[in-house]
Design a protein around this nucleic acid. Structure first.
Lengths: 119, 119
DNA sequence: CCAACTAGTAGGTCTCGCAAACTAGTGGGT
DNA sequence: ACCCACTAGTTTGCGAGACCTACTAGTTGG
């Protein structure tokens, strides 16, 4: 069978790299716990739209493998079973440390680009 | 011969993806033109340190191939020849359009992460 | 039965890091 | 003169990681 490969959806997808995990950790920090499907919707609302399910689920597994989140399966109450994720202590530490580095980096990059746009 | 592979330098390297080209375009917009070696130093000063030469030069070639910059070789005054790069009209357009998208995205991501850190 | 939910896998792509080669001048030691 | 080390610059090959698309597959409610 021939896999017809569509165009990748451009630069925006590159910007997620290395930020998406922080974004997920941040969402979990806000609500205590959540599962994949609604995380996708919350990401979209937070201004990171179009994150693919096939991107998020492996990411959640990576986070769990790294010990930053813990997973718990619960049978569905009005729907299929859901796998809830919650921050571990290690996850919270990672969020604060890496989060600070990210905001530093992002602010520098935004400042640079804006200077260039004004020039 | 065995290639000993060093650890990649962590998450920061992912953050460059899709931003480094904007950063370079922005630097060129500020000064009109520049060449690779000094661009590396200016990137470091702008808060994007440790960009590798082997990363920047292929990037400059990509930008040239895409018509966003034009290259001009000049014989060296006190050193080897230098390849100067300058924005094209298309490059300036790309900078303003993509730059606005980037700052949008980055601000959303920073806001989200900071909310999570405070929670 | 269909639509909305929910989770997962396989394979591919792209951009980056690392390492090293290569070219050209400059200055020091012998 | 000659060699060497150092700085300034550019280029290229290989490898890796995190994302994408496409596809699979289950459950529940109208």
């Amino acid at each position: 069978m021939v896999l017809v490969r569509a165009e990748p959806r451009g630069r925006r997808t590159q910007w997620l790299r290395g930020v998406l995990d922080l974004a997920v950790l941040a969402l979990l920090a806000e609500t205590g716990e959540d599962y994949g499907y609604t995380l996708l919707q919350r990401l979209a609302k937070a201004g990171l739209p179009d994150v693919q399910a096939g991107t998020l689920y492996p990411l959640l597994n990576r986070l769990a493998a790294d010990g930053l989140v813990r997973a718990e399966w619960r049978a569905g109450a009005g729907g299929p079973g859901r796998k809830f994720f919650a921050l571990t202590d290690e996850g919270r530490t990672a969020l604060t440390e890496r989060g600070a580095e990210w905001t530093d980096f992002a602010r520098n990059a935004v400042a640079l680009v804006e200077r260039g746009m004004r020039a």
